[in-house]
């Protein structure tokens, strides 16, 4: 199976599903990186470069959406979810407008650009906004499904995409897959513990599940692509069936997927859990794979977290 970055799948999906008058795409001088350039080539009249002015871009997107448009606004996650946070809040979320903030270059696998460009707080900021829904697909096929779904669902969305080419979890880009916003997908069945992951940590977790199997541990793996609204039923069930949960995210352990799962567990069916993620530190320059090692976002560290958690059951 060929590798493809979720940003590339995003660019392709915009072209594939964007052949409609209401779809407009904005970018902030990063269209070659966010891959909205594909859409720009296909439908130049509906692609607008807003220059290096992300705050303005988000508010412009809001204004456009009031003219019966479905607006996609793209830049790097750090600039979408943090530079322009207040514009996303006040111009887009408060009036509940039809804008899809599709942010690429999330997490540390941005690589060589280093910490200034490695966004590890966007799940926290975007999740905190009323009316905002937050999705992080793990591969090309699920990105295609996500883009198709958000294009047809009114209201604000934050879609968290990555730079690094990743292995398919559901198949190739063009495969039609079962995907429902807000419904976690079970990637591996198991009853000893549940690993809840999103984004490219799903792939890391698949490797971890296989390693655990060799040790006689049957881990369930959920792809929690929708971080908000999160799949409460799947988390409750995981707690009841397996009694232990490890969350894995390419994000600070504060405010992201792990926090969202902990919120659900503590109010429903508490069980022992552990968060794997960025341990409240900034990233740094390097090859993505090397950074995943340095910051313990590897199958090995997931295995270690699982063993530690199971021991506390």
């Amino acid at each position: 199976m060929s590798k493809m970055a979720t940003r590339e799948a995003y660019g392709k999906a915009l072209v594939e599903f964007g052949n409609r008058d209401d779809v407009v795409v904005l970018d902030a001088d990063l269209s070659k990186s966010t891959m909205t350039t594909f859409f720009q080539k296909a439908y130049p009249e509906r692609h607008f470069n807003m220059g290096i002015a992300e705050g303005n871009m988000m508010s412009v997107a809001a204004g456009m959406s009031t003219c019966d448009k479905t607006v996609f606004a793209s830049t790097f996650a750090i600039f979408a979810a943090e530079r322009a946070l207040e514009q996303v809040r006040n111009s887009i979320c408060y009036p509940n407008l039809n804008v899809k903030v599709c942010a690429t270059h999330s997490g540390i696998t941005v690589g060589e650009d280093g910490a200034s460009h490695q966004c590890i707080e966007d799940l926290a900021t975007m999740r905190a906004l009323p009316n905002m829904r937050v999705i992080q697909p793990c591969d090309a096929a699920s990105t295609r499904a996500v883009i198709r779904a958000v294009m047809d669902t009114e209201g604000p969305f934050y879609v968290r995409l990555g730079r690094l080419a990743v292995e398919g979890v559901y198949g190739e880009y063009a495969d039609d897959i079962k995907f429902e916003i807000g419904k976690a997908n079970t990637i591996r069945e198991g009853n000893d513990i549940t690993i809840i992951a999103s984004g490219l940590m799903v792939q890391q977790s698949i490797a971890a599940v296989d390693m655990l199997k060799a040790k006689g541990i049957n881990a369930r793996l959920l792809d929690m692509h929708t971080i908000k609204p999160i799949d409460v039923a799947a988390i409750e069930k995981a707690s009841m069936d397996t009694g232990a949960i490890v969350t894995v995210e390419e994000h600070n352990i504060f405010g992201g997927l792990g926090s969202a799962v902990a919120e659900v567990l503590s109010e429903t069916r508490p069980c022992i859990m552990k968060r794997v993620g960025m341990m409240d530190v900034f990233g740094k320059s390097g090859k993505p794979e090397a950074l995943l090692q340095i910051f313990n976002l590897t199958p090995e560290s997931i295995v270690a977290a699982v063993e530690e958690t199971i021991a506390k059951k």
Binding site: V24, F48, G55, M58, S59, V60, G63, M64, S65, T66
Partner: peptide, 23 residues
């Protein structure tokens, strides 16, 4: 036509509306 209150954002939303009028 638009929720406002955070200064600086309204004029951007007006730009978006005008851009769509052109489109």
């Amino acid at each position: 036509d638009m929720s406002t209150g955070s200064l600086g954002q309204g004029i951007s939303t007006a730009v978006g509306m005008a851009m769509m009028g052109k489109l």
